[in-house]
Design a protein around this nucleic acid. Structure first.
Lengths: 329, 329
DNA sequence: AAATTATATGAAACCGATTACACATTATAA
DNA sequence: TTATAATGTGTAATCGGTTTCATATAATTT
């Protein structure tokens, strides 16, 4: 592997000149430039990024921590982040944390040691004190779905509560008169908010009763089980709002198995807007702007890394109703 | 950020001793060890990986190139690889290539510059000449779903053709007497092999005709469209083998929309074994040992990196029938 | 014509670790 | 009681770049 020294020697200039040429800073004469270019071509020289990083430049690498890439929400997020990172010339390190604090902590340590320039964290379990290590090293952080304000931390969330309300209102508009809810883990803020949206609209209506809320865990199987239970208690329900799409898919399956027709007998709506196009009927959902979230996260991170003065502050993104077959009339 | 120098100064020893302590090689007295340990604790010192890498050690990072993490097959692969990598103390760089040669080439360059210790590539489009850069740098490569033999390249594939045969035989056993096939891109070797398996079993039967093969693209939508077309030509078909699960899901949807009952009227089987538990009925499939593939890929890569003498050679993994509701009687 | 300023280059320090080598001390073997 | 081996430690070179600073020449100003 050719080094900058080899290039400088063969080009008859100093390494400093080659370095200036490579980084396009400082003066380099046209002759020198041309010679260097030729030599680089000839030796097929590529600067060693490790050495560059050590010499004080950045690593051009960011860490992306997600609970589990197997959950279809996260590939979408990961993809958008990687695309954006790529445009900025950054590379993404993928870390699955399983919402396990120990793993999170370990990964944060590793990422610090690997000198990543910034980290995007999507986590339900993370707490401010877990980020102190990053703060100490002044490594910028963008937090998704979680808010703790700080200088070097930007938080991005969506309007979960409004989304919950939107979902229920849509079901009501479509003629539902007894709406069940499958809520996600209560430990997750955004999950609680979605449920709060549901309750806000439903409490006070004549049909509402707490047993219309099923408690589940954001998985297909969980949604399926919760739906079955809800059906035994309320065989006459005619609408279901699940706090995420996976549970909604599970609910759909449970309904179909129990010979309820969706959307004729029961209408179903989810939350997230992941592409579950294989479902029949297709699922209405409250869509998060996932791609935009990823892109914004990366933009914000770059802003923090470059210490731009117009650093992005915390943002709350609107969600939109994506009405498909599962809530049609 | 504390450096090894800070530690050595505070501990009253040389950096060499601290380094020896850190890497547990060479002699370090008990007293020195204890003092160093205390100082490290006190300063919350963490060795700088970049410096370590530059000093000749490895980066403990591998690259993972996949076509698109949005395709549900790849999160499963990525997850298993990351888990295995983690156990070895490695970190994974995620690269989406979109089966685009230019992107692939760019990523390979980037990964070389970032000095990854090895690369796992899952790609339909990659060709041997794209890997010459890696060969030159002696960066080990594990190739999935593609075979080109070489010293520093190990290839892992599955028995695609046998899987195709298995799928059709299963349909026949379940009583199907007119089986259609939705095949994937012909540019992809494993796709062609699966179709070859189908043809091998079907050619020569009295019902087979080439128009029972629909050409598609490994997507849900593609499978859906292909199924609709097949149905107009062969409304009496009673079995479908799709070359991957996504197309099978699309086919399932098309069948249900056209009021065919699955599995009563038509039985459907896919290929891959990705977890599409939200489908109703659940999809029978020819399952690849995805987790094992990932784990093995990582093991092989580590073997190449460490230049172990019992380096793994190319492997072809068996596939298994996962019979679910969609092919039941 | 003298004083500035812009252009161009190289020597050497530095980033934060690893490691070969030299040297000193202690423990064991002959 | 030596000779030899095992243990322990520090100095300095090295990895491959970036960057400060000093210096030299060419181009402008005054």
């Amino acid at each position: 592997m050719a080094t900058i020294k080899d290039v400088s020697k063969l080009a008859g200039v100093s390494v400093a000149t080659v370095s200036r040429y490579l980084n396009k800073n400082g003066y380099v004469s046209k002759e020198a430039s041309e010679t260097i270019a030729e030599v680089i071509e000839k030796l097929n020289y590529r600067p060693n990024n490790i050495a560059r990083s050590l010499a004080g430049m950045k690593t051009a690498t960011i860490g992306l921590m997600v609970p589990d890439i197997l959950n279809p929400f996260f590939p979408e997020l990961a993809r958008s982040i990687e695309d954006a990172a790529n445009e900025y010339g950054y590379t993404v390190m993928l870390c699955n944390t399983d919402n396990d604090s120990t793993k999170e902590q370990k990964y944060i340590d590793t990422l610090i040691q690997k000198q990543v320039d910034g980290i995007i964290i999507s986590s339900y379990t993370i707490k401010p004190e877990h980020l102190t290590g990053l703060q100490k090293q002044a490594i910028p952080v963008v937090l998704m779905d979680n808010v703790f304000s700080s200088d070097s931390i930007v938080s991005l969330t969506v309007e979960n509560r409004q989304g919950g309300e939107l979902a229920v209102r849509h079901l009501l508009e479509q003629g539902c008169s007894k709406i069940a809810h499958i809520c996600g883990p209560l430990s997750i803020t955004s999950s609680r908010d979605r449920t709060a949206g549901f309750e806000h609209v439903c409490r006070g209506t004549d049909w509402f009763t707490p047993s219309l809320i099923g408690y589940s865990d954001f998985t297909v199987k969980g949604g399926y089980t919760a739906m079955k239970e809800l059906l035994t208690m309320h065989p006459d329900l005619d609408g279901v709002f699940a706090s995420n799409d996976l549970m909604a898919a599970g609910a759909l399956k449970a309904l179909q198995e129990t010979d309820y027709k969706v959307p004729q007998d029961v209408k179903v709506i989810g939350f997230d807007g992941i592409g579950l196009e294989m479902l029949n009927p297709e699922l209405s959902t409250i869509a998060q702007p996932i791609y935009k979230l990823g892109k914004t996260a990366m933009d914000a991170l770059i802003g923090l890394i470059r210490k731009e003065n117009d650093i992005m502050t915390d943002q709350v993104f609107p969600v939109t109703l994506s009405a498909k077959q599962s809530t049609m009339n």
